[in-house]
Write a protein that binds this DNA or RNA. Structure first.
Lengths: 347, 347
DNA sequence: CTGAAAGCGCTAACAA
DNA sequence: TTGTTAGCGCTTTCAG
């Protein structure tokens, strides 16, 4: 059987509340007994029973992370697994555990968010997921669970007040395009993706693209804005099926790295070299981009920063020391340009 | 405030124990009250308070997953994030949550395994991690926590009885090599990796390689067995730094996909085409291999099966219905060959 | 078949 | 500064 505060109390010859207070660093206890009891606890490798504890304190020491079901395994995986690592890192510092779960149980279709909250398994929620229902959001708010949306802008109406940390995709789309403009490109194909899935993020990238062109006095050619579906394959096919389009263009802005790589492969196949004939810039800066040839020029999503800020925010409100005073928190982090080999001056 | 069994008891006009029994499907309760109470619970969106519950039952409904700190982010990420997805899928079926954590807290250096167990946060443990200490293993066993090692063979001495589900890497190394032999290749370079990190898995792949050669009556040339360090970069460099070696070889067995891709890139750089001049086979079947050109021939690690078996085993012992009778469980799943484009007949 | 009561390990009034 | 006690929400004897 594992050791409880009663055991320690017996050994130390004090009451179990004294043990509790000591280990919780209560100012009520004399330093002498405190250190003595702490020593005993340490010797016995004592840890509080988290369940008993949370029954009183309503604190579990674990955070729920809601993670999108991966529609297209690879793309999602790539980006999110590093997000998760970064989040874990921040939480570890505060000795918080995390339960990662999909929005719904895939067998029972129950909302895991509601389940975790009702079961009292978590103290807070990091939601990396756009398609949350109004009902769920209401539920979270009513339960008073601190929460933050990370990366995805929920698809709910904007009337809803939400706490959000995300990438400034408008800015990202803009700097990507400006980079190509600076290299002398004028006809730039923009490979975007179906907006509805990832909140508005792709739409924003396209807006950035358009705005960069407009500021440069270039007319927007809607035929140059094409809808892919996130994947390598789709982008690859688009190139093969729209040869003439690509022949009339000197640069491509693909709104994620996977599509950029697909485009490059497609272009190679129809006889273009990248970046000599056509420059290609991606978006995400997934590590994979470095393994291809040419190494991918791309827009770096500030994952580390996003995770860090989200955790700090959440931890702040959990500890009743909020780091932000403006409510609701609504923060956009600017991505940065990573210039590698897949873009070059227009010939 | 959220609803408790007492609330339901009041509404139903019964005692809270009756509610508890009803919701737990006790045979002691009449069907009539049972259904009535279940209905009320459902209407109120009731869920048991997991903490109060585990205080009695010693069951938390969550599984701890110990996950290696990623030495080389990318390689590890790629493989493990799909493992984790598969595990989550199996656990979800049983309504189990999971806490994923690294072996040690990176700030306090505490063992997270011991912490989770002592805090009573988990019912069982899936350990995807080789470098567990003897002390930790003892601790797990003494605590009586059901556990299973997944993928990695712990680096402890073999005297220790452990429960393990892993890939049969010997078999994997063998079929990879046999594939090349069947294509007529005789001088096959074997790019392995430093054994000490991943348990013995790379050593086993090399053994499989050797054995395939021996069975075919081919003498083993130790100069053809080279130590990489898992990464794309390392493999790439090895090619550039050992040109003559690669000139005297018609095929390469790289013991993971990333190194295979690095080799291909290196070979291209020094003027060889793959597979025309040199065939290359990888290992892992990470999805990335499909995006390169040529598409990578490789050995598929049976991740889905590994996760499935591990979860079934664990769930079995948690439910006191073990699916295996032989103890300890020590199971190796055979990988399979995936032939794509990077290997071909010897000229 | 149902209820009363004890207790899981802890925290937090309230006393002393 | 410390001990006593009640109670968090649940399960589980033991009675009825």
């Amino acid at each position: 059987m594992s050791v409880t505060i009663k055991d320690i109390a017996k050994i130390a010859g004090v009451s179990h509340s004294t043990v509790s207070r000591s280990l919780n660093d209560s100012p009520l206890i004399s330093d002498k007994t405190k250190t003595r009891i702490k020593q005993i606890a340490k010797d016995l490798d004592f840890q509080f029973n988290a369940n008993a504890r949370s029954l009183n304190t309503k604190k579990t020491g674990t955070i729920g992370i809601i993670y999108p079901e991966q529609m297209e395994e690879f793309r999602v995986n790539l980006y999110h697994s590093s997000l998760l690592s970064d989040i874990r890192y921040s939480l570890e510092r505060e000795n918080l555990d995390s339960i990662v779960t999909f929005p719904k149980n895939r067998f029972t279709k129950e909302s895991n968010i509601k389940k975790l909250i009702n079961q009292k398994k978590i103290d807070g929620l990091i939601i990396i997921y756009a398609d949350i229902s109004k009902e769920e959001l209401e539920f979270i708010k009513e339960a008073g669970i601190p929460h933050i949306f990370l990366h995805y802008i929920p698809m709910l109406g904007i009337e809803d007040e939400i706490e959000l940390i995300a990438t400034d995709h408008y800015f990202g789309g803009k700097i990507a395009t400006e980079h190509l403009l600076e290299l002398g490109h004028r006809r730039i194909l923009c490979l975007t993706a179906d907006y509805s899935i990832g909140g508005q993020e792709f739409l924003q990238r396209t807006e950035g693209y358009k705005n960069a062109l407009v500021e440069k006095g270039i007319e927007i050619d809607e035929k140059l804005i094409i809808d892919g579906n996130f994947t390598f394959e789709s982008a690859y096919k688009i190139v093969l099926e729209n040869k003439t389009l690509f022949e009339n263009v000197t640069a491509v802005f693909a709104q994620n790295d996977l599509m950029a790589l697909g485009v490059i492969r497609g272009l190679n196949e129809i006889g273009f070299s990248v970046p000599e004939d056509i420059s290609v810039i991606g978006y995400d800066d997934s590590e994979m981009g470095m393994y291809f040839k040419p190494k991918l020029t791309t827009v770096h999503q500030p994952r580390e920063e996003l995770s860090k800020i989200a955790c700090e925010y959440l931890i702040g409100v959990l500890n009743k020391k909020p780091i932000y005073t403006e409510i609701p928190v609504y923060k956009f982090v600017k991505p940065t340009l990573v210039i590698r080999e897949s873009t070059t001056k227009k010939k």
